[in-house]
């Protein structure tokens, strides 16, 4: 098979996959925040406030997701350059990347 070299997905496939996921999250999270704010406004009758608050929260979420994704890719690149030590046991590196979003 063309896309599976030596019984694993080829590097190009993985690379394209990783890169293509980043941009969408920013936009979609913003719109989800907007939609939640809009419908909360309709429900609660607080006309502009929920919309503004949730739009800002959506934008923050989008940037945080992109940041988290970039950190994940960076860790993958680090693990690849430092040797084949990547694997299931590396979850502890996650904790540091979640202090953003304030």
């Amino acid at each position: 098979m063309f896309f599976f070299k030596r019984d694993k997905p080829s590097e190009a496939l993985e690379l394209f996959g990783n890169v293509a996921t980043i941009g969408m999250q920013l936009v979609v999270a913003t719109f989800i925040g907007l939609a939640i704010g809009y419908y909360l406004d309709e429900w609660l009758g607080t006309k502009p406030w929920m919309l503004i608050i949730f739009l800002l929260l959506g934008i923050v979420t989008g940037f945080r997701d992109v940041y988290r994704e970039a950190m994940r890719l960076q860790r993958g690149a680090d693990a690849q350059s430092s040797g084949p030590a990547c694997g299931p046991g590396r979850d502890d590196a996650r904790g540091g990347s979640d202090r953003q979003g304030k």
């Binding site: 969408m24 999250q25 979609v28 999270a29 719109f31 989800i32 925040g33 939640i36 949730f54 929260l57 959506g58 923050v60 979420t61 989008g62 945080r64 997701d65 979003g101």
Partner: peptide, 13 residues
């Protein structure tokens, strides 16, 4: 709240 927005955004994206 942030995680909620993030999780709802996942199926949409």
């Amino acid at each position: 709240v942030l995680e909620l927005v993030s999780h709802i955004a996942r199926p949409l994206s």
